[in-house]
Design a protein around this nucleic acid. Structure first.
Lengths: 181, 181
DNA sequence: GGCTGCTGTGCAACTAGTTGCATACTCCGA
DNA sequence: TCGGAGTATGCAACTAGTTGCACAGCAGCC
């Protein structure tokens, strides 16, 4: 149930509308927790019912009316409860690994092409992360509190993408060589 | 829809019962594609309806009767189609990253404890993978085809766990120091 | 006026994952 | 005989993710 908590974290930093949240989940938060606008609205409704957020109708000029959500004291409480709750790493379901595992049941060369495509995507994403790191965190040793935490999450993304890149390279080399025998 | 394909890969290697598959998904395949027995039976039923597998009732001595599933020619075809289909890396939903991102809204020390717990789990898993690597693949350069593919999937697991360990260490060091100021 | 794009809010249908529950057969040990 | 464990097969209810669809307000442009 971490979407609720991801929403609480985001709203606590900055109150906003469902639409804004969807935008945030398309970008920054979306790097480590993805969510669609349909999901977000559904979840906001449930959170409102639970009293974790408050909703305020706001009329706008030149734009449609909007509903601004804020974290309630109860929501803050729930977030703190969750932060202290012991969790476990999630189980893995990795498409590409299934394809590599079954490559000999099809054309291994085609699977290698797929690995190369994924590698391209991961390389792109790593570039994005590194650009953000450089632009937003030029001096990591000067970071504290929330900014430090932000940086550390980004570091996780970078490390994950680096590992995937290395793996893809290892797979490509091995499969190309195997294909040559 | 990769559970169907993971099941096809597994059954193609070795026909088996729903129960056996559940055992395999608890162990070997489960490292890169997890599935419960409820899910597996539900999915097998659907695959049977689609004609991707055939089911043969087998009476046993000293055990209950069982239903052995095999990949059908259609199933083989579907698997090959899927192997050639272009896919994309899955979107990420990483609990621990949300917790780290929101650590300052609770007790960062408690979140650091959570990171340490996760680190422990990842270290355990890395040990398991390394033991398998050593025992099952003592000479990787001698591997071909299916065995090579198996090894490469394992390598992916190892690299992922290594990256997560390094990241957890980086997070723990940074948060402990931040906590000291 | 109509279309497009941006802002803004949803409902609906379906699938996949999770958890609980259940039944049956067989063997073995207390 | 009964209970527990292992083998074997499911159904059910609920939640979370995915995709499609829809409507509304407003501004700008052809």
């Amino acid at each position: 149930m971490a979407l609720e908590h991801a929403i609480l974290v985001s709203l606590d930093e900055r109150p906003g509308t469902g639409y804004e949240l969807a935008r945030r989940f398309d970008k920054s938060i979306g790097f480590f927790w993805a969510a669609t606008h349909q999901q977000i609205y559904r979840t906001l409704k449930r959170m409102d019912d639970l009293g974790w957020v408050t909703a305020e109708e706001v009329a706008q000029d030149g734009r449609p009316d909007k509903k601004v959500y804020r974290v309630s004291p109860q929501g803050r409480q729930e977030l703190q409860r969750w932060l202290e709750e012991a969790g476990e790493p999630a189980t893995i379901r990795h498409d590409l690994s299934v394809k590599i595992r079954g490559a000999s049941l099809g054309d291994p060369g085609k699977v290698a092409d797929e690995v190369a495509r994924h590698r391209g995507r991961h390389a792109e994403r790593l570039d994005v992360y590194r650009a953000i790191e450089k632009k937003d965190f030029p001096d990591p040793s000067a970071l504290h509190g929330r900014r430090l935490h932000q940086y550390l999450v980004l570091r996780g993304g970078i490390k994950a993408e680096e590992a995937l890149l290395e793996w893809c390279d290892e797979v490509l080399v091995a499969m190309r060589e195997d294909d040559r025998r």
